[in-house]
């Protein structure tokens, strides 16, 4: 477990350690450290199931881009060992035979309110097992949290 100043959220949020915001973050150091542990669990779990670490990094970069977080996207894209095609939101995943996964991830990330039972059924029809569906949702859900934490911290810094 890293110190709060080494966490992705702290770094990407652009928090100055010696500012009032830095002091507020220090007061929640444990939460920032646990946030980093959660990043490790969704991006690089020991038991990856059907989602390789490369695929997770590509989907994370994609979701960061969909949210306009270019620096965070770069950070995750840097972890992709193989094909980075899915990291591009313009790619619908068909060529990689990942169309269903990509469509699901984009909808859960950007149009959460519209997600219906059918969206989960479509994944099942594409051969994605229950455990991998949960892993996809957790990856997506964690990123929603981390991206908003970063956006909020940046906004605090800009308006200090």
């Amino acid at each position: 477990m890293s110190g709060f100043q080494d966490t992705t959220a702290f770094t990407m949020g652009g928090v100055a350690a010696d500012s009032a915001i830095g002091a507020a973050v220090e007061g929640r150091a444990k939460i920032f450290e646990m946030t980093q542990a959660a990043e490790d669990a969704v991006l690089a779990p020991a038991e990856a199931g059907g989602l390789s670490h490369d695929l997770r990094a590509a989907l994370a970069a994609r979701i960061a881009r969909l949210n306009g977080e270019a620096d965070l996207a770069e950070r995750y894209a840097g972890r992709i060992g193989g094909d980075a095609a899915l990291a591009d939101p313009a790619n619908d995943g068909t060529a990689q035979d990942m169309g269903a996964v990509v469509a699901f991830m984009d909808k859960v990330a950007g149009r959460t309110a519209e997600v219906r039972a059918e969206d989960v059924e479509t994944l099942k029809s594409a051969g994605i097992g229950d455990a991998d569906i949960v892993r996809l949702a957790e990856l997506n859900a964690f990123l929603a949290y981390q991206i908003r934490l970063i956006a909020g911290l940046r906004l605090m810094g800009e308006t200090q």
């Binding site: 929640r28 859960v108 949960v134 949702a137 859900a141 949290y145 991206i147 908003r148 909020g152």
Partner: peptide, 18 residues
């Protein structure tokens, strides 16, 4: 407030999706 709001961006994407 940022933390609790962001956290529910996470929780909602599990509860509402799954």
């Amino acid at each position: 407030l940022i933390l609790s709001t962001a956290l529910f961006g996470w929780a909602n994407r599990l509860m509402h999706v799954l």
